[in-house]
Amino acid sequence: MEKELKILKYSDLPKMIEKFISQGYPVLAPVHKGKIVEIEYVQSLDSIALDVLLSTQSAKKAAFPKVEKVLEYTMNKAGVVQHPVDPADSKETILFGVRPCDASGFKSLDAIFGEGPSDQFYLSKKEKTTIISFSCPVADEYCFCTSVGGGPGNTAGSDLQFTSVSKDELLVEILTEKGKKASRIFADLLTEANSAIDKTKFIADVKVVFDLDSVVAKTTASFGNAELWLEQSLRCIGCGACAFVCPTCACFDFQDEQDTKKGVRLRLWDSCGFSLFTLHTSGHNPREVQSQRWRQRIMHKFAYMPEQLKVVGCEGCGRCSRACPVDMNIKEHLTAIREQVTV
């Protein structure tokens, strides 16, 4: 679809949210929670944190929540009765006020869950989510979106994108059919935009720090470079913070929970950073030490995914680095791979 440009007044944003809600669309948006910013259901614009660079966690939970029921069953004398769980049981939702890297992060999840037999738990929720992103007027030292093919005004993955073009006006880019549909809900608040408007003037300048093709090639060649991975990860303590806040990490676990008569199987976030992730019951572990697990993190995103799924598993949002308790900075580590590895 050809993109359409409109103008929306800041002062009309509360009305826009009201319209979504009154027409039955739940709205998910960033919300201040003490020092962190969560993505949560909101009832009005007041609670939405539009002033922050990025929410602490990514927006992936809109389609891939940390805990999700995939099976339900009851036990009786005759055996087990399964009560089908409908993967498509979710509402059309507006994901509002996220950043371009959140929106484009879904393309990694789309690839993983869509490949082969498709995972409808994710796909149908994603399909029913309309993403309204805000371009970034500022960035910080952790951001490196422009080095991985994105950018502060990148529209890939967004259905609508808002850019602040003056104190009281937002440029609205209608990018997809889904976006078009959502824009009809507040069409009366929109006015025509001057098509000559230069969006780049209003967004942050994020410097490219490395050449992606080269990082991918060098990462791909580095499986056996134990020294590199050890050097980079010596301070890594093997938690799940980086993977859990990451918009593209998709790894999961299943766990059953039941009382005497009924039970559920839950799908839970998991991370390649945990030592248990690959531990065989025999005690053997193919990724025994943290440097091997760090290698997996980087190689999965920058070697395996580009080759197998034709998508780089990183949007350069820098969340992992902000969340890391020991300041493992992925931008710095990728730059080091670019500089240190020769192929």
Partner: peptide, 12 residues
């Protein structure tokens, strides 16, 4: 409610 069970607390 905010906890995501990343176990960073335990690891640290």
């Amino acid at each position: 409610e905010k906890c995501i069970k990343c176990y960073a607390c335990r690891a640290a």
